[in-house]
Simulated assay, not measured.
Amino acid sequence: MNAIRPFTLDIPEADLADLAARLDRTRWPEAATVDDWTQGTPLAALRELVAYWRNGYDWRRCEARLNALGQFVTEIDGLDIHFLHKPSSRSDAVPLLLTHGWPGSVVEFLGVIDELTEPAVADTQAFHVIAPSLPGYGFSAKPGATGWGVERIAQAWTELMQRLEYRRWMAQGGDWGAAVTMAIGQLAPSECRGIHLNMPIGRPGPDDMQSKDPKVLKALQRLGFYQEWDSGYSKQQSTRPQTIGYGLVDSPSALAAWMLEKVHYWTDNQGSAWDVLTMDQVLDDVMLYWLPATGASAARLYWESFGKFGDGTVSIPAGASAFPGEILPAPREWVERTLTNLVYWNDLDKGGHFAAWEQPELFVSELRACVAAMP
């Protein structure tokens, strides 16, 4: 039952033909009554992406890349967990547990794994990379009962690292990955050296509402925008995930629209997501929701844990990298209320919510700097 089994992707051609047929049969709505993104993903932007998906995108390229990295599955607490595992050849490499979020997947890390495991500069820190797919995401199994919130996932990830026989490892994450990584920090397994977040989690205190600090004012403004204009997806997924799931599992165009809106708003771009990501990168991610039909199961994590996102404090060594395009920026003083043993902090000058995806070089350098600061 504790066996780690190799996993090879080989999606049947029939599934890809079905996708093509569904894209061809998309029933399009009329365009929005505004010429921007304020009513959601614009018709023209989605039609452009769907046209490329239908006529230019090559899934087999992504499939080959994932297979070449090394994919595995192991059953933990009754659920098959899929994960990438790329050990370094370096004896001094640090085991690194990377956890993605929504609407992300393990493909967020494809641009950093090679440099993390086999650095181009020989004397820089190397890592053994372990990147699991959250339960109900990607090619991990879908929970058939309630209870798979971030605390249980943190316990499962700790079990995964034990099965891989890693000692003195580090956990890292953003979005749901940040919540899971914080939960690992709260468990404080003896083997965990520390954690790193690229979505630092912190909440304002009573005095912050009267603050004149520009960083605090920016954080409060972004929090207000998120609550009023950007959080509809989370309200739907945290209250009625099954309802939205029907559309996300049945219609590839609906799935792409649901995800593209967040990629547009949450990347640090100059007006278009394609400023920082390619259509291939985004569609690789969409395919990890479409092929295993995880639109509903991924949304259920919000039902399980959204109301407790980032609760509690972490006392083991922690580091945080604050990227300027983060959806909910938290000033250092807020984060220190949550990460009470903050040994590393850095404010970056570019990058957004999907740090590894958008800024792979900065992401890698931040992890190396954080490890260097860990006791």
Rank of each mutant, 00 (worst) to 15 (best):
A154I: 00
A154T: 00
T158H: 04
Y166G: 00
R167Q: 14
W169M: 11
M170H: 05
M170R: 01
A171T: 07
A171K: 08
Q172S: 14
D175Y: 02
D175Q: 03
W176I: 09
V180C: 12
T181H: 05
M182I: 08
A183Y: 07
G185C: 14
Q186T: 12
L187P: 06
L187Q: 15
A188M: 11
S190Q: 06
R193Y: 02
R193C: 04
I195H: 05
I195W: 06
I195M: 02
L197K: 07
M199N: 14
M199S: 14
R203Y: 12
P206T: 12
D208E: 09
Q210P: 00
S211T: 07
D213K: 01
D213A: 01
D213Q: 01
K215H: 09
K215Y: 05
V216R: 10
L220P: 09
Q221W: 08
G224R: 13
F225K: 14
Y226C: 02
Y226V: 04
Y233Q: 02
K235D: 06
K235L: 12
K235R: 10
Q236L: 10
Q236H: 01
Q236E: 07
G245E: 13
V249G: 01
V249P: 01
S251H: 04
P252T: 08
L255N: 08
L255E: 07
M259N: 14
M259D: 14
L260C: 04
L260T: 08
L260R: 03
H264Y: 15
Y265N: 14
W266K: 02
D268W: 15
N269P: 03
Q270E: 08
Q270R: 11
S272F: 13
A273S: 14
A273H: 13
W274Q: 15
D275Y: 09
T278E: 13
T278P: 13
Q281P: 04
L288F: 12
W290P: 00
W290M: 00
W290Y: 01
W290Q: 01
L291H: 07
L291F: 11
A293K: 15
T294C: 06
A299M: 04
A299V: 06
A299S: 15
